[in-house]
Amino acid sequence: MIQFDSKELSSSELEGLNAHFQERIDAEEKIEPKDWMPEKYRKNLIRQISQHAHSEVIGMQPEGNWITRAPTLHRKAVLLAKVQDEAGHGLYLYSSAETMGITREELIESLHDGSAKYAQIFNYPTLSWADMGALGWLVDGAAIVNQVSLQRTSYGPYARSMVRICKEESFHQRQGYHILMTLMEGSAEQKAMAQDAVNRFWWPSLMMFGPHDAASAHSAQSMKWKVKRQTNDELRQKFVDQSVEQAKAIGLTLPDPDLVWNEERGHFDFGEIDWAEFDRVVSGSGHCNRERVAHHRRAHDEGSWVRDAICAYEEKKRSREVA
């Protein structure tokens, strides 16, 4: 791969490349791996894609927590397939990030040392079977709203993995909703279990879209580069609007007294997110922050001898072939 070293370019050359790059973006052309791109664009994308990839992979844990306890064999198969899909999605995303010249090992390292983030919602614990419903319906629902928008992102490999991911995720939200629907048709205890799960996961789901546009550090530049196609607040509104009807249809109440239809705006108004809570979880005080990273690190470390073994085996095989 040719490495474009911006330092060796004169400032007028750099300006020309930048202008050409932005023209391409404005014309809705995709940026592909070997194209010249501003270093900041590359960094910004690696940050976003890796955060997305880590979220998929860390997101396996709260649901993986219930695979061995799923209450029917059908639910067990569905959940297992779903969590496996998350692993697949993490893999697609790591692959897209790797096209920008960073290795998966480096990405994992920054997850372990805390410099890379993942969706804070996965720092919440899953305490009942109904949480599998709430995660699928709300968390995957929110993720899909975001990912549908990202299918049009400007970086080709990222956009293509989003297309693939969206296609596969369509069942994720439905299976979650179906879990809740079944609970809401069940006993009083089951209904309470479902409502409790929604109470706990509703607000964190809204937080998934990130800070308000005005407060978002990366938003404006990401929009200009078309890395992001819709703003945090636009996407959040879309999610709220679609969730209200779905909740009502199965008798669930969304835990927000300020949630009310606004005829003028053509959208639902909703209450203010507790950003102090958001900051608290992001900065390490969620129930599972330490556990999530430790789990990943443990699996990675325990797998180290396996990865060594296959490399060594391949090495021996090659030298036998040479001899």
């Binding site: 899909d85 697949g88 893999l91 993995s161 596969e168 391949e314």
Partner: peptide
């Protein structure tokens, strides 16, 4: 359709089956 990590061709083929044809 994408990429993956493996140590040899055979393993790559099997992981491709497991990852990309679920």
């Amino acid at each position: 359709v994408g990429s993956l990590h493996a140590e040899d061709q055979e393993q790559a083929l099997e992981y491709a089956r497991d990852v990309y044809t679920r």
